Simulated assay, not measured.
Amino acid sequence: MIEVKNLTKRFQDFTALENVTCTIGSGCIYGMVGSNGAGKSTFLRALTGVYQPDGGRILIDGMPVWDDPAVKRRIAYVPDELYFLSGANLNRMERMYRNTYPDFDPEQFRKLCSQFQLPRNKSLGQFSKGMRRQAATILALSCKPDYLFFDETFDGLDPVMRNFVKRLICEDVLERGASAIITSHSLRELEDICDQLALLHKGGLVLESDIENLKTSQFKIQIAFREEYDKSKFDGIQISHFEKSGSVANMIVGGDRDDIVDKLRAMQPILLDVLPLSLEEIFTYEMETLGYTFQIDEMNEEGAANAKS
């Protein structure tokens, strides 16, 4: 289990993380979304012991991660900015990882290299961006760590390879009970793989929830009446978003679906539809409720632009 309490990290001219608190259980995939500068990379670097926190604490299975080699050997980290030994190929990187990680699995390494169809004797400097990310993923998974941290994991990967990497991460978590933290610009990349999802904005964790709870606790209502009405007509119903155009209102509602639909039907509307919500809509409306104007669509457009570059 990872316990983060009031984590703060400052640099010379700005605060990258401020009072971030979360708990990440074993055997789960924890997704973190946020735009550039939100603090995602800083968060992972603090969790891996690359950065020393300026405030708060980080415990992995009850042990502080900073300056503790024993804890760090249980973590495999694939950063956004990849690093390999100068002039190294995959075989040389394997030797280094085998000397660092006691549970490194050479058979798993060879199997993954074959599945990804990556040459083990070719210099990594000659690999494309996507191939380098695949190589880093192979090395991380071969370490058989208890904790896997991936920063912008799918950046530079084509759609087929993204799905393959997602499947490998899911299988590893399920089979070994490992925990994975994955950061991304894009909600679309994470909603089909994560158990929990968090939104980091300007160094703060502003929203965190179980995926299934997010998807089942809220829904969209489209409703209309012949008479004039406003939001006050629905007093007693938990509404996080209300928008009316003409006689038709669109509402984001939380609570027991059957109970709420029965209440609305009793009002004798001329139109009543219950519609599912996408994860993007849920996050957008949750952010509005919290008083943030951060746009999920803009974040996804930014992620798509980065993937094309």
Rank of each mutant, 00 (worst) to 15 (best):
M1S: 07
L7I: 07
T8E: 10
Q12P: 02
F14D: 01
A16S: 12
T21A: 02
C22R: 00
C22Q: 00
T23Y: 02
T23F: 05
C28S: 11
G31T: 03
V33K: 06
N36Q: 04
A46C: 15
L47P: 01
G49L: 03
Y51V: 03
Q52S: 09
P53L: 04
G56W: 02
I58V: 11
L59R: 03
G62H: 00
M63W: 02
V65G: 08
V65S: 06
W66H: 08
D67Y: 06
P69H: 14
P69E: 15
A70F: 05
V71G: 01
R74Y: 00
A76S: 10
Y77E: 03
V78T: 06
V78E: 05
S86I: 05
G87P: 12
G87L: 11
N91W: 12
E94L: 14
D103R: 15
E107K: 13
Q108T: 11
F109I: 11
R110I: 02
C113H: 12
Q117S: 15
Q117G: 09
L118M: 11
P119S: 11
N121W: 08
S123R: 15
Q126D: 11
F127S: 09
M131Y: 12
A136I: 05
T137G: 03
L139K: 06
S142C: 10
G156K: 09
L157R: 10
L157F: 05
L157A: 04
R162H: 08
C170M: 08
E171R: 10
V173N: 02
G177L: 02
A180M: 00
S186W: 02
R188K: 14
R188C: 04
I193H: 05
C194W: 03
Q196N: 12
Q196M: 02
L197M: 15
A198N: 05
G204K: 15
G204H: 11
I211S: 03
E212R: 14
K220C: 13
F225I: 01
E227K: 04
E228I: 09
Q238R: 14
I239P: 11
S240R: 10
E243M: 09
K244I: 04
S245T: 09
A249Y: 13
N250C: 09
M251C: 12
I252H: 07
I252S: 10
I252V: 15
R257M: 15
R265W: 12
R265F: 11
M267H: 06
P269F: 05
L272E: 14
L277V: 07
L277G: 07
S278Y: 13
E280G: 08
E281H: 07
E281L: 10
I282H: 12
T284L: 14
T284A: 15
T284P: 08
Y285N: 10
E286K: 07
G291S: 06
T293H: 12
T293Q: 13
D297H: 13
E298I: 08
E301I: 07
E302V: 07
E302G: 03
A307T: 05
A307M: 12
